[in-house]
């Protein structure tokens, strides 16, 4: 019993040491964790806990790897155009005209979705509805997997969802579905998405639309 306990303690310490080396080495954050499409299983780790940091200004993340924004834009176009059932999930920030400039951003998002041939399912608010939402016409951050499963969505785009609910929903999607997640974020980005932009506004949305249209024209 005593030896077993010793072995267990040693194993634990060894794991912690490896984890520490993995996270911090020579001042750089090194992690083997990749934010890939799931299903990762029940209670997937937050990407931040696995050493994935938010991108710097002018950069983006592709599966946890920091890349220049342009590379991420190109990757988003690839994913949208190669998807069987791409969907956009606009959140309250673009669904409700709560301040000046929102209508223009919403129009840019819609134009991108339409150009990419993606369907739109809104997330009008965050209420955990009773008895359940209708997954055919709406998505809720508390159980986004229902909408993904119901519509057999393979690529989804979050845009205009408040950060804390986006993080939660992205993690649930990674945990329970094989859907590839893209976050077009107007703030600091979402490390839990497979691809995330940061500080994304109308210029990025218009650039994506132009790239999608051009790719469609060439194909």
């Amino acid at each position: 019993m005593k030896n077993k306990h010793k072995r267990w303690t040693f194993a634990r310490k060894y794991c912690m040491l490896l984890k520490g080396l993995q996270l911090f080495y020579g001042g750089m954050i090194l992690t083997k964790y990749r934010v890939l499409a799931g299903p990762e299983g029940y209670l997937p780790p937050a990407a931040a806990c696995e050493g994935i940091a938010l991108p710097d200004v002018g950069y983006a993340l592709i599966e946890g790897r920091e890349v220049p924004e342009q590379e991420a834009l190109s990757a988003i176009v690839d994913k949208l155009l190669s998807a069987k059932r791409p969907f956009f999930f606009p959140g309250p920030n673009v669904l409700w005209e709560w301040k000046a400039g929102v209508a223009e951003k919403a129009a840019a998002v819609r134009k991108l979705a339409d150009t990419a041939g993606a369907r739109v399912i809104p997330m009008p608010d965050y209420r955990p509805k009773y008895p359940m939402i209708n997954p055919a016409i709406e998505i809720n951050p508390n159980h986004p997997n229902l909408t993904i499963w119901h519509n057999k969505i393979d690529v989804c785009v979050f845009v205009g969802v408040h950060c804390h609910y986006a993080n939660m929903a992205l993690k649930i999607i990674r945990g329970g579905t094989d859907c590839y997640t893209i976050a077009i974020c107007g703030e600091a980005g979402h490390e839990d998405a497979n691809i995330t932009l940061r500080d994304a506004g109308i210029p990025q949305l218009e650039a994506l639309t132009a790239m999608v249209a051009e790719r469609r024209r060439l194909s």
Binding site: V94, A103, R110, V120
Partner: peptide
């Protein structure tokens, strides 16, 4: 509602 998404709102 924003006009762009009024048609998809539940």
């Amino acid at each position: 509602m924003t006009a762009a998404f009024a048609d998809v709102m539940p």
